[in-house]
Amino acid sequence: MPGGRLTQRDRERIAAGLADGLSYGEIARRLGRPTSTITREIGRNGGPGDYRPRLAQQATVRRARRGTPAPAPARDTGSLGAAKEERLIMLAVQTGLPMMMARVHIDLLLSDDGRRTAAELARRLSISPATVSVAVNFLVQHGFVRRERDPQRRRDVYVVDDDAWYHTMVTGRRQTLQTVEAAMAAAEELGLDSPVGQRLSKAGAFLERVSLDMIESADRWRGLLS
């Protein structure tokens, strides 16, 4: 019931909301709860990538039996505030980033020096090392961050810098150009005078022109990031 303790059913709805990519605020609204309640619930039970409603319910029962307060989330959202950070994350998701990748990316962006180790990301976001590994590998592959080696601590450090915006845009457009090449090849194989061939040819020409224009624009304005 709204205002009381979360039930097993509530936790199942939270998990479903996370799977659907909903923001904490939207999940809270659907359950009739404060956003802070949902934030604490997810943060203390594995984070958005590892939240399991059954395990969360069991952990709550154990804490109640012990009579000890639930541990506070390890997340430190800094001076920006949780609501504004969540807004940034959802905007990143709307551009096409998967939810967990968006959370890791925004956390890196909001760090003072744009650098974090995998352990720091896992602690701050309350997620498993395996989840961090999947997220950062995706971000590295798509040009959002780069991987550096810290020789003193013998561990990888993940870095996001100003030039990441340029590399992300160029990488995305180059991937689109690969799609263009495939579409044009299919159009030629099917016949440029066939209905499908004409459709693929037009789409390929459009995507090619737009992608090349965006790469040229990124090159022209790259200096603004310096």
Rank of each mutant, 00 (worst) to 15 (best):
G4P: 11
G4S: 11
R5W: 01
L6H: 05
T7K: 03
R11N: 07
E12N: 01
R13K: 12
R13F: 04
R13T: 06
G17D: 13
G17P: 09
D20S: 15
L22V: 03
L22A: 11
L22S: 03
L22M: 10
S23G: 09
A28D: 02
A28I: 00
R29C: 01
R30N: 12
R30H: 12
R30Y: 06
G32C: 08
R33V: 10
P34R: 11
T35G: 02
T35A: 15
T35C: 05
T35M: 10
S36K: 08
I38Y: 03
T39Q: 12
I42S: 03
G43K: 03
G43F: 04
G43L: 03
G43W: 04
R44K: 13
N45T: 01
N45E: 00
G46Y: 06
G47A: 00
G47M: 01
P53Y: 02
P53G: 00
Q57V: 04
Q58W: 07
T60R: 15
R62C: 08
T68R: 14
P69H: 08
P69T: 12
P71V: 12
A74V: 06
T77F: 12
G78V: 12
G78H: 14
A82P: 13
A83S: 05
A83H: 09
E86H: 14
R87W: 10
R87Y: 10
L88W: 06
L88Y: 09
L91N: 14
T95K: 02
G96A: 07
G96V: 10
R103I: 03
H105E: 08
I106E: 12
D107S: 11
L108K: 04
L108N: 01
L110K: 11
S111T: 08
S111F: 00
D112H: 14
R115C: 05
T117W: 00
A118T: 06
A119Y: 02
A119H: 07
A122W: 02
R123Q: 05
S126M: 02
S126H: 02
I127A: 02
T131V: 09
V132Y: 00
V132P: 04
V132M: 06
V136W: 01
V136I: 04
N137I: 00
N137V: 00
F138H: 15
L139I: 01
H142L: 00
G143I: 03
F144R: 13
R146L: 12
R147K: 15
R153T: 07
D161C: 00
Y166F: 15
Y166C: 05
H167N: 04
T168A: 11
M169S: 13
G172K: 02
Q175V: 10
Q175K: 13
T176V: 15
T179W: 00
T179F: 02
V180D: 00
E181F: 02
E181H: 07
A182Q: 15
M184H: 14
M184S: 12
A185V: 01
A185K: 07
A186D: 11
E188L: 08
E188P: 03
E189W: 09
L190I: 08
L190D: 07
G191D: 04
V196I: 11
R199T: 06
L200P: 01
K202V: 14
E208G: 12
R209E: 15
R209N: 14
V210L: 03
S211R: 08
L212R: 15
D213Q: 10
E216T: 07
S217A: 11
S217L: 13
A218W: 10
L224S: 04
L224R: 11
L225V: 07
L225N: 06
S226E: 14
